[in-house]
Write a protein that binds this DNA or RNA. Structure first.
Length: 511
RNA sequence: GGGCCUUUAGCUCAGUCGGUAGAGCAGUGGACUUUUAAUCCAUUGGUCGCGGGUUCGAGCCCCGCAGGGCCCA
């Protein structure tokens, strides 16, 4: 970093040098004690933070390789391992420490007077604290009680921790888990698991796409015109262009440009940003998957979506019948049902509803149920009634298909059913996980809908989409008929694990 | 946006009727060569989230603000 932006103020929580010194002066007794040990090491020529340590084995490897040792059995195999001290038990002339590696596996180090001599043993007792990283060399043995151990012949501190670890015998509270995730990762196996599951799900999705010849793209996050969804954007400023820029709310309009250019099967897994509320199911920045398939439609993209989610569940848990964190089991297997919106509403309500049902009738009906809708339209009322009658009963994975046209302005009209559009919402465990369309590719139609949105924006609707002239030009060059879908990756993780959104995001934004 | 709960030692939490701040772990000093959250003896550590108010006296009651959580919209 050599270019220092001239108009970038220091973040509010950044410390000045004076504040940093003041913070040090306010440090706790434990911090002071550890700082003093660090200094003592330096003064006597011992590096508290060596550049490298000569590790020969990972702790998990030693455990696996020597799992067969009987209690008290010793070997001549010499290994060098490093780990964080998570327990320490000193008995005068023999010290025990449990070393933990990043994956959570542990091994016991034994520092004995007979092996290391008086000076080294005294130094261990003096310098080694809980939370320090230490590197030990020694023979692999099993203790009298059968604990796999390293009988240490040589050791040194690999990294001196200046702050104490959280209490290992009590749960860290939720706030500390989020704000200091590194502590959560040190003390809680499930926190480590969550990271691995997320990585496995991401890898699984890329693999599934690769199996269908999709190409992964990375489209702009900084955009001059934000589009592709209805949401309030974050606004920023480019010094170089001296212009306002937006953090993207969706990658859709760029992925479609790519399809116009002949990249027929594309996907992107990346972050979107929406300047809206944050709660247990919404984060201002969230990972989104979008995919477009030329010459496909909403049904082919539904099949792909089912495969993506099923493979993700397999990658996360090893099966399609998934045990969630609350102990319940959810079944992702089989072919998922497709439930047409009007038909399912009619059946659940015991009363026929079609695209012909009048606004007055729907209004009266909603009124009886005390359902209130702002600026009611036929489509809004049908969706509200559907949510009242059908949604609560949705448990199995379900594609809800064929939505009213007036609430889905960016979707192609159904090829045979008048009044509905080729759109689905995927519901899993009762919440909306993904949405898919047969994409609107008529540039004239698209322009009219943008103009309608732009007039909403000019009347103060902060979520309305602005007109994207450059995108319309692209469409005028001809986009092939396509299916498209979008899925929240964080929601997918929630669906296959039962975790809350703040558990699926490693470092969630907190105030 | 509304309602309820919550914020006390490094961590996890108690704190009764309003009467001068407690525990476990961690830390400090000591004992201990097979421990497993080692044990035993001694011991340090507090802006009770922040700001007001009531009171002779507030961690506790009242008002406001901030952080966090849950439920509802």
């Amino acid at each position: 970093m050599t270019d220092v932006p001239d108009n970038t103020a220091a973040p509010e929580n950044a410390q000045t040098a004076e504040e940093a010194l003041a913070a040090e002066a306010e440090s706790t007794e434990q911090h002071q004690v550890r700082l003093a040990k660090r200094q003592r090491m330096i003064d006597s020529g011992i590096a508290p933070y060596p550049v490298a340590v000569a590790v020969t084995h990972r702790i998990a490897d030693v455990r696996e390789q020597y799992a067969h040792l009987e209690s008290g059995e010793e070997t001549d195999a010499v290994v060098g391992v490093a780990g964080r001290v998570v327990f320490a038990r000193n008995t005068g002339k023999l010290c025990f420490a449990s070393l933990q590696s990043g994956d959570g596996s542990r091994i016991q180090a034994m520092v004995s007077l007979a092996e290391v001599g008086e000076e080294s043993l005294a130094s261990w007792k003096d310098l080694v604290d809980l939370a320090d990283h230490v590197f030990v060399t020694g023979r692999v043995i099993s203790s009298r009680r059968g604990e796999l151990s390293i009988m240490v012949t040589d050791w040194h501190i690999a990294s001196k921790a200046l702050r104490p670890m959280p209490n290992l015998h009590a749960e860290l509270n939720d706030e500390t888990r989020m704000r200091q995730r590194y502590l959560d990762l040190i003390v809680r196996d499930q926190a480590r698991q969550n990271v691995r599951i997320r990585a496995a799900v991401n890898a699984s999705m890329r693999e599934t796409f690769a199996g269908h010849d999709f190409t992964e793209l990375e489209t702009p996050m900084l955009q001059r015109v934000h589009g592709g969804a209805s949401a309030r954007p974050f606004v920023t400023h480019s010094n170089a262009f001296d212009t306002e820029l937006f953090l993207r709310i969706a990658p859709e309009l760029y992925l479609k440009r790519a399809v116009v250019g002949g990249l027929e099967r594309v996907f992107e897994i990346n972050r979107n940003f929406r300047n809206e509320g944050a709660d247990s199911t919404h984060s201002p920045e969230f990972a989104m998957l979008e995919a477009y398939e030329a010459y496909g439609d909403y049904m082919t993209i539904a099949d792909l979506t089912q495969e993506l989610v099923q493979n993700a569940a397999l990658a996360a848990t090893g099966g399609l019948e998934v045990e969630l964190t609350d102990g319940s089991v959810y079944d992702f297997s089989g072919e998922w049902q497709k439930l047409p919106m009007y038909e399912s509403l009619s059946e659940a309500a015991g009363r026929e509803v079609t695209v012909e049902t009048s606004l007055d009738e729907l209004l009266a009906w909603a009124g009886e149920l005390e359902i209130e809708v702002d600026q009611p339209t036929h489509g809004k009322l049908v969706e509200e009634l559907w949510e009242h009658y059908v949604k609560p009963g949705l448990d199995k994975p379900t594609f809800v298909i064929d939505f009213p046209v007036d609430t889905s302005p960016l979707t192609a009209a159904h090829r045979s059913k008048p009044g509905v559009v080729e759109k689905w919402d995927l519901y899993v465990r009762g919440f909306e996980l993904a949405t898919g369309y047969s994409e609107l590719i008529d540039p004239v139609d698209q322009r009219e809908r943008f103009v309608a949105q732009a007039s909403l924006a000019s009347r103060g609707d902060v979520e309305a989409m602005p007109l994207d002239e450059d995108f319309l030009t692209a469409l005028e060059h001809g986009m092939p008929p396509s299916g498209g879908m979008g899925m929240g990756v964080d929601r997918l993780l929630m669906a296959v694990t039962g975790n809350g959104i703040r558990e699926t995001i490693l470092f969630p934004l907190v105030k």
